[in-house]
Design a protein around this nucleic acid. Structure first.
Length: 563
RNA sequence: CGGAGCAUAGCGCAGCCCGGUAGCGCACAUCGUUCGGGACGAUGGGGUCGCAGGUUCAAAUCCUGUUGCUCCGACCA
């Protein structure tokens, strides 16, 4: 492709709206342009990269027996009502204003299940893997980070249909393996974490994550362990019981509002402090007891409570249920009817200090077994950087991550809701057992760039690069020799089946070099007067910055065998 | 949805406080010089200052409203 005939609008400066490297570089290198918040146009180079990603997705999905569909984005709302997801999705689901009864599909479990119900009637019709690569619409409350969170995006979504749970396990595992291959082929460093299923419903799910400061998820990882912080645990010694078991005693703490105040003013070891926080769970008060300054993990609390409807109690509620303001709350002598749960680390602890439920006073020598009415000990704490991993004893790293893919064992939630049943070998009617597997296509592109760039621009690998070779004709408009040599090389590369972008613009050398580094094609082949007089060209490897001079007659062959 | 910020030429910005005919850099066009790491000079084109009201002799500037974009938070398959 000749650059003079290809639309590649590069920018020298970062547009202000772009805050993260991938967004900045996608704009600067002319891959995308924003159209509205969370809505992007892909320019020819950007779309070329998307097509490369899609080819990889398609090959690996076909390799596990996937059959490609193209399903409509316009969906009848009735189907979504039948699965309860109109309500579950809430504002995220786009509704069509001037055509009642249609919504824009944010994902396609419902439509797949609808077609399965129509035609998959016998156990002989399964297993099936159905997939598509299609535009999804989600009315995100806050689109951000370029294409990483958009209102319209491309997703590879796949669905497995099985007759047995073992069949689902196998389909799930195949997708797991395929996803690893896909991300490896794309050259993305990733890890897999167990995750909560959210509004999708289902039994088990795992997320494929990419470590990135631009990520929205937080994970705890070592070389052998990875978990979303929402579920991560670590090896921390529980608060031990001490021998002397003194009687509970109230003491005045007029200036101690926090655990740190207590530690400082009364010389109490941090682990002997029990911090109390009050949450309203479905509008019922829970007092949650945490060790010292451990932080409550709200997602763990939600899991225990079985609801997302939790919030910290307000001041009025604190006084109403405990008798004190924050700072003096504890598990003993509560005023109202309130459920008390405690973190696992506090199991049966004694000799503890906590609030007296009386402003300005605390209690010491609390024995949680003797003095408090703890209904449950549960893991509720947020782990911290550096704590010891339960799997391999290494210190945990707490990192931000981007979710690239998500695989779910859905089970029968959708097949039951939409009555998609099959007849088994014994003549019985059973719901189809389903799995659902998604990958964000634009996210692959953005994550790759997040991981592979430097101060000059993007560093593409062969798999995703829009072109493999960037042929730079220096001062091509001023030198007939350079013109002739680079035209010939351009033809030779094309004849050899090497994807080549030919910078035949009338620009200065510096502009071409800088644009080439910005676009980041794997190899730059520089045709200039300097080397041409000896019949040579210079080759630069964008990733390693390796440069070498080679005969113009050898360079095509040389690059044919490179990655 | 809560909190904050921004909106002036394709991009990056100044001007606004203190109202008086809209500027700078890059990019773009033409000419000359330069010619392997974002060249130099000259000349030129391009903006109803997000939009709508209001105040005023006069509004980019002051007031009110509104829309869009970004960030923090909430939410998120």
């Amino acid at each position: 492709m000749r650059q003079t005939q290809h639309f590649i609008p590069t920018l020298k400066e970062n547009p202000t709206e772009a805050q993260i490297p991938s967004h900045q570089l996608m704009l600067r290198s002319g891959l995308v342009r924003g159209l509205a918040s969370g809505v992007f146009s892909f320019l020819p180079m950007g779309y070329t990269v998307i097509k490369k990603i899609i080819n990889i997705l398609r090959e690996e999905m076909e390799a596990i027996g996937g059959q490609e569909f193209l399903l409509p984005a316009l969906n009848p709302i009735e189907i979504w009502e039948q699965t309860g997801r109109v309500e579950a999705m809430g504002d995220v689901l786009f509704h069509i204003k001037n055509r009642e009864g249609l919504v824009l599909a944010p994902t396609h479990e419902e439509i797949i299940t609808y077609h399965a119900k129509q035609h998959v009637k016998s156990y002989r019709d399964m297993p099936q893997i159905w997939y598509q690569i299609q535009t999804k619409f989600r009315n995100e409350a806050r689109p951000k980070s370029g294409v990483l969170r958009g209102r319209q995006f491309t997703m590879k979504d796949a669905y497995s249909l099985d007759t047995t749970w073992e069949g689902l396990d196998e389909a799930y595992q195949r997708h797991y393996d395929a996803y690893c291959k896909i991300f490896n082929r794309c050259g993305i460093k990733f890890f897999v974490v167990g995750a909560s299923s959210g509004a999708m419903g289902g039994k088990k799910s795992q997320e494929f994550m990419v470590e990135s400061n631009s990520g929205e998820d937080i994970c705890a990882i070592t070389d052998n362990y990875a978990a979303n912080l929402e579920v991560a645990t670590s090896q921390v010694q529980p608060v031990a019981r001490i021998n002397e078991n003194l009687l509970i005693e109230e003491f005045a703490t007029p200036n101690a509002k926090t655990i740190d105040d207590l530690i400082e003013q009364f010389n109490i070891p941090e682990e002997r402090c029990a911090k109390s926080v009050v949450y309203m769970v479905n509008d019922e008060p829970w007092l949650i007891l945490m060790r010292g300054n451990d932080e409550l993990n709200e997602t763990k609390l939600q899991a225990v409570a079985g609801t997302n409807n939790i919030r910290p109690a307000g001041n009025d509620e604190l006084v109403k249920y405990t008798g004190a303001d924050h700072g003096s709350i504890g598990p003993v002598g509560l005023k109202g009817n309130i459920k008390v749960v405690a973190d696992l680390l506090l199991q049966d602890a004694n000799g503890m200090v906590s609030g007296a439920n009386k402003d300005g006073f605390h209690l010491k020598n609390i024995d949680l077994k003797r003095d408090a009415n703890i209904s449950e000990y549960i893991d509720l704490r947020t782990i911290n950087e550096g704590e010891i991993c339960i799997a391999d004893g290494q210190p945990l790293r707490v990192v931000k991550a981007i979710e690239l893919g998500h695989i779910f064992k859905l089970g029968t939630r959708y097949s039951e809701a939409l009555d998609a049943k099959f007849i088994d070998a014994d003549g019985n009617l059973n719901p189809i057992i389903m799995g659902s597997y998604g990958i964000g296509v634009e996210r692959i592109m953005a994550c790759y760039i997040e991981q592979n760039h430097d101060e000059k621009g993007i560093i593409w690998n062969k798999a995703l690069a829009p072109f493999f070779v960037h042929l730079l004709g220096l001062n091509i408009h001023k030198s007939d020799e350079v013109r002739a040599a680079s035209e010939k090389l351009y033809a030779d590369f094309k004849a050899a089946g090497i994807e080549v972008l030919f910078d035949d613009r009338e620009e200065t050398a510096g502009v071409k070099f800088n644009d080439a580094d910005l676009l980041g094609l794997p190899y730059q082949v520089v045709v200039g007067q300097k080397n041409l007089k000896d019949g040579n060209v210079e080759v630069k490897n964008r990733k390693t910055d390796e440069r070498f001079v080679i005969s113009i007659n050898e360079v095509v062959k040389e690059l044919t065998f490179r990655d």
